[in-house]
Design a binder for these strands. Structure first.
Length: 584
RNA sequence: GUCCUCGUAGUUAAAUGGAUAUAACUACUCCGUCCUAAGGAGUAAUUGUAGGUUCGAUUCCUGCCGAGGACACCA
């Protein structure tokens, strides 16, 4: 439709002997102003000079007259001049009925676009480290990554989900040191307690190990941890190997349990130990060209490549004076490995917290010097930190709030709300999980990815207004309307419309554009904001209309609208990585 | 100190350079209801600061103030 309007404007301008290269057609801010709008009159009024052409408003009037003369499109009902010189287009009853019919026909495919068809994209996200807790940051990265992956798929891309994890290094040594202080370790290792609980203990051991390492009164601990660290690399100590193998398995399996709950399935798992060697090779092969020695270490002096108007780069160490690879070098190796695994990849996306922005820029610069063809194929997306508003959560258990505990506590609160339902336990548990995850994910995805998120535990589970459960609730409600229509035997009918055009219709047809924009900008919050608007509109429609009503000739159309809404909501929620239960 | 990311109602957030800056939470008023009240209909309140570019700036540019982050052998 946008295209047709653009053409109509171009033709009208041509008849008036005005040439404009780029005509902007957009949706007005307010639905009352119409469905499409253009600012051409304001743009060209300046370039052709005010007198004798008159002001933008006068010019807009002339253009509208010409448009009306040319228009044969039945979808355009009304065209008018408004405000400072905007030209607003109102679409017809017919157009909206058609769009409802289209949505009914597309079902779960609603909102798809082909802007990325044929593209192979790898998205790396979550990245929790074995032996360390799954913290809130991982939860954020996971929610954002999963959503972006889904949105890109809905735009036609073939997406691979990847996870990158630090399986070696000082953090592992600290955890193993902490574990080895535990006299009951042997029993724990042979027990079959659930992974998440075991992983929790390993996380605590890591914290203890870190504290011991920092503790100046305990110099022995530091020495011992450093020794364990080398033993992890050379696998010389059977005891360390045993604890390592056990801890690695337990924490990785616990992560899998969480991914299952969160709805993520990774195709690629990259481990630091695997990619480190590749990174070291890349550094050694580019000595003199890209890297140089400095104070015994190997560094990349990125400031040499600073350009006016671009973010400033700085020097970073790639190999320590002991010859060990730093994180930068591993990142280098990781990217090489990704392209080796998928040689025809068009884009490699990495999602991390924004504290890694500056150094990722340096690494990206080094990479694009080594492989110029990678330069346009790497994309780093960053997100802010999650700040917990109230301290209530942490006091509950007397320890740090991890991503895992946040998930569990949220689900527990949803369970409270579901207590009164006369469902069986299994159904209650399933719905509590899905709703709890929705509350968390939505509060992460409703805002643009750049900034920090203030997570208010109490608010997120109040489920009112701007929340994930509100969206799910609207869906469940529509579902129950559909069930009633089936009981009463009224079929959805996109042709049985009356005169009134409902607000919900003016929103539903925009879904594909929203998906396309979210995909282009890698911003899930456009979907979240759109869904809230649609849900609010449907709830208002629901509140003010009796949808299933045998007395009403247009009931079939209202039911068709309900189906359309439910398709859009279900698919939209899916793009946020949120499931839509039919009852709640 | 240098650089990066930010700064919008009391709070949390929206707004491809456009129209009267939009929602939610909170507070207050109303709707016991039918298809799920985890709902609906209302009322009140906002662009850190000083300039600049523009027909038009929350958006772009510069200075200042404020928050967080990164800056050499951690990840």
């Amino acid at each position: 439709m946008k295209h047709e309007i653009q053409k109509l404007i171009t033709d009208a301008l041509l008849n008036l002997n005005i040439e404009v290269s780029d005509i902007v057609v957009e949706h007005p801010t307010d639905l009352k102003m119409g469905d499409y709008s253009t600012n051409v009159a304001m743009v060209i009024a300046k370039s052709i000079g005010h007198p004798p052409a008159g002001g933008p408003k006068e010019l807009a009037g002339k253009i509208v007259t010409e448009i009306l003369r040319l228009n044969t499109d039945k979808n355009i009902e009304h065209v008018e001049v408004a405000g400072a010189g905007f030209i607003n287009f109102h679409l017809s009853r017919n157009f909206f009925a058609h769009s409802v019919e289209d949505i009914l026909n597309s079902g779960a495919d609603v909102g798809k676009n082909d802007s990325l068809s044929g593209q192979k994209i790898m998205v790396e996200y979550t990245d929790p480290n074995p032996f360390k807790p799954f913290h809130i940051g991982h939860l954020m990265t996971n929610a954002i990554g999963e959503s972006i992956a889904g949105i890109l798929e809905h735009s036609g891309a073939s997406v691979s989900r990847a996870n990158y994890q630090g399986d070696v290094g000082p953090h592992v040594a600290k955890a193993i040191y902490g574990l080895m202080q535990d006299k009951k370790l042997q029993d724990k290792m042979s027990s079959h307690a659930n992974n998440i609980k075991q992983a929790g203990n390993i996380g605590k051991a890591y914290v203890e190990g870190s504290e011991a390492y920092e503790n100046e009164n305990n110099p022995l601990a530091k020495k011992e941890i450093d020794e364990i660290n080398t033993k992890i690399y050379d696998k010389s100590d059977p005891k360390v190997n045993e604890v390592y193998d056990w801890g690695f398995k337990v924490t990785m399996e616990a992560f899998e349990d969480l991914y299952k709950l969160l709805g993520t399935k990774f195709e690629f798992y990259f481990l630091e130990s695997m990619v480190a060697i590749l990174g070291i090779e890349a550094v050694k092969n580019n000595m003199g060209e890209v890297f140089e020695e400095s104070d015994g270490a190997v560094v990349f002096k990125a400031e040499k490549y600073n350009k006016e108007g671009q973010p400033k780069l700085h020097t970073r160490v790639f190999l320590t004076s002991k010859g060990l690879p730093t994180y930068e070098t591993k990142e280098l190796g990781l990217t090489e490995e990704k392209f080796a695994r998928m040689p025809d990849m068009n884009l490699s996306i990495v999602i991390t917290a924004n504290e890694q922005m500056d150094y990722m820029r340096v690494v990206a610069k080094a990479l694009s010097l080594i492989h110029p063809k990678y330069e346009s194929k790497m994309k780093h997306i960053t997100h802010g930190m999650m700040r917990l508003a109230a301290g209530k959560m942490s006091s509950r258990k007397g320890n740090v709030v991890t991503g895992e505990s946040l998930i569990r506590d949220t689900i527990a609160l949803v369970s409270e709300k579901l207590k009164e339902r006369d469902w069986d336990e299994e159904q209650k548990n399933k719905v509590a999980e899905v709703v709890g995850i929705a509350a968390l994910k939505y509060s992460i995805l409703k805002q643009s990815t750049g900034g920090d998120i203030a997570y208010d535990f109490e608010k997120s589970i109040s489920f009112e207004g701007d929340s994930g459960p509100y969206l799910q609730y609207s869906y469940a409600r529509a579902n129950s309307v559909i069930e009633k229509s089936q009981r009463e035997n009224i079929l959805p009918d996109p042709h049985a419309f009356g005169e009134e055009i409902f607000e919900i219709e003016k929103l539903l047809y925009k879904f594909p554009e929203v998906v396309e924009r979210a995909s282009r900008e890698y911003e899930p919050h456009y979907i979240a904001n759109y869904l809230i608007e649609v849900a609010r509109s449907y709830n208002s429609f629901y509140g003010n209309t009796i949808i299933v009503n045998k007395e009403d000739k247009t009931s079939g159309y209202k039911i068709a609208l309900t189906y359309s809404f439910s398709f859009v909501m279900k698919t939209g929620l899916h793009l946020l990585g949120i499931q839509a239960p039919t009852k709640m």
